[in-house]
Amino acid sequence: MRNDITLIIMSAGESTRFRKNLGIKKHWIRIDSKPIWLYVADKLQFRYNFNRVLITAHKSEVKYMKKFCDYEIIEGGDSRKKSLQNALNFVTSDFVIVSDAARFNLDFDVLDMLISQKLDEFDCIIPTLNIVDTIFIEESGVKNYIDRDNVRLVQTPQISKVNILKQALSLGDFSDESSAINKIGGKILAIDGSNKLNKLTYFDDIKNCNIDSNGEILIGYGFDVHKFCTNKKLILGGVEIDCEFGLEAHSDGDVILHSLCDAILGAIGAGDIGEWFPVDDDRFNNIDSKVLLKEVIDFSRSVGFSVVNVDIMILAQIPKITPHKDKMISVMSAILGISRNYINIKATTMEKMGFIGREEGICVSSNVSLKYTL
């Protein structure tokens, strides 16, 4: 066990460049049915048995990521540097090895060499690659060619002395540990890296990678009920219904979309609508439930899942649902990004029985299926 080294996996980014295609964040693509942040952590921890494993996460993903593992999940910041600083606050070892989840194609020949160095003799140890192509810097239209023999590409993982790294990061914004430590004159050792360690940045980068592309199917069930009130408009399935009552709720009371949100969250194991949009949070007071559904579906896409189909059952004595079904389906089709024929709405009365039959409220249940797809 490496009691002197803590492993930090950087996985808190927005993946803006990668997400342009399907919306999935790159650290949520799967290898062996694991998101790559977990795949990398497991591989490294199994081989080296570090003192501790910390994984940075986007603030919206902290709770969700904790369901996947027993590693410590640390809320990241709005930059790589800030995320790393947050994680370093929990480090008690003398050294830290920092790896980007996006470098999931691990080369253990390089990593073994990295780990085997005399750590006390250097402030930072890094893998690097030579440049094989001609290179220039263009400034104001002038191309200044650089001697490629003096240029290196810097990769991760990198091992750093914790006290030196904390001091260096306080001096500015840096793209990696070595550039920060170099800024304060730290001693850096460069070893030969590997093309296998190239970072996943753009969607096209996955073409030659052995990753899971599709297949996993998830099923979710949602249920919601609201009672009638006289001081609100009635909104069902994102459609305003012309009648003299609405549904009592902190939001607009759209019982259909609430049920659908819960079904999607249930399928991916991300809690429930009450956890996401608490009734004691004024941000959601009278909020349009289409906004809530959009947030839920965006999250499900970011972690790799798209809705395949939806089946909704509405229990209501009043109002009449059938005249509004088509418009509801159109609204949901636009938000979910699926064809209308994959959305089904059924409605029935309660034959005057129970609170629904007494025209006191509406109850809705939803079933959804989602598929992991790249």
Score class of each variant (00 low, 15 high):
residue 176 D to F: 13
residue 188 I to N: 07
residue 191 I to T: 00
residue 153 L to W: 13
residue 138 E to G: 11
residue 146 I to W: 09
residue 173 D to F: 08
residue 139 E to K: 12
residue 183 K to A: 14
residue 153 L to D: 10
residue 162 V to W: 01
residue 154 V to K: 06
residue 201 T to K: 06
residue 193 G to L: 01
residue 178 S to T: 14
residue 194 S to T: 00
residue 192 D to Q: 04
residue 159 I to R: 07
residue 195 N to Y: 01
residue 144 N to Y: 11
residue 190 A to V: 01
residue 173 D to K: 12
residue 144 N to D: 12
residue 171 L to C: 08
residue 143 K to Y: 05
residue 190 A to N: 08
residue 157 P to Y: 09
residue 201 T to C: 04
residue 134 T to F: 15
residue 155 Q to K: 08
residue 154 V to D: 03
residue 171 L to T: 14
residue 197 L to N: 01
residue 198 N to W: 04
residue 196 K to A: 01
residue 173 D to Q: 13
residue 155 Q to W: 09
residue 164 I to S: 03
residue 144 N to V: 09
residue 187 K to Y: 05
residue 173 D to C: 05
residue 173 D to M: 12
residue 174 F to C: 07
residue 176 D to E: 14
residue 199 K to I: 04
residue 169 L to T: 04
residue 167 Q to I: 03
residue 168 A to N: 07
residue 145 Y to N: 08
residue 158 Q to C: 08
residue 200 L to D: 02
residue 190 A to W: 04
residue 148 R to E: 12
residue 176 D to I: 13
residue 137 I to D: 14
residue 181 I to A: 15
residue 172 G to P: 09
residue 172 G to E: 09
residue 165 L to T: 00
residue 174 F to S: 10
residue 170 S to C: 00
residue 190 A to M: 09
residue 190 A to G: 05
residue 154 V to N: 05
residue 158 Q to L: 07
residue 143 K to P: 10
residue 186 G to P: 06
residue 187 K to W: 02
residue 184 I to P: 10
residue 177 E to L: 14
residue 183 K to S: 14
residue 193 G to T: 01
residue 162 V to P: 00
residue 192 D to S: 03
residue 180 A to Q: 15
residue 161 K to T: 01
residue 183 K to V: 11
residue 175 S to A: 13
residue 198 N to K: 08
residue 196 K to D: 02
residue 135 I to M: 09
residue 187 K to Q: 07
residue 187 K to S: 07
residue 170 S to D: 10
residue 178 S to K: 15
residue 136 F to K: 12
residue 177 E to F: 12
residue 191 I to H: 00
residue 177 E to Q: 15
residue 136 F to S: 14
residue 140 S to C: 10
residue 174 F to H: 12
residue 167 Q to H: 03
residue 146 I to L: 14
residue 165 L to H: 00
residue 166 K to L: 02
residue 195 N to T: 01
residue 140 S to Y: 12
residue 179 S to F: 13
residue 195 N to D: 05
residue 169 L to S: 03
residue 167 Q to C: 01
residue 148 R to N: 11
residue 141 G to Q: 08
residue 138 E to K: 12
residue 198 N to D: 01
residue 184 I to Y: 12
residue 195 N to L: 02
residue 175 S to K: 14
residue 172 G to I: 08
residue 148 R to W: 06
residue 201 T to F: 04
residue 141 G to Y: 09
residue 145 Y to M: 03
residue 197 L to H: 01
residue 160 S to W: 01
residue 149 D to C: 13
residue 160 S to H: 06
residue 160 S to N: 05
residue 169 L to W: 05
residue 145 Y to K: 06
residue 142 V to F: 11
residue 198 N to Q: 04
residue 157 P to F: 07
residue 151 V to A: 08
residue 159 I to C: 02
residue 158 Q to R: 08
residue 171 L to A: 06
residue 171 L to D: 08
residue 147 D to Y: 05
residue 150 N to Y: 12
residue 162 V to N: 03
residue 187 K to A: 04
residue 189 L to Q: 07
residue 136 F to V: 06
residue 160 S to K: 05
residue 137 I to E: 15
residue 171 L to M: 13
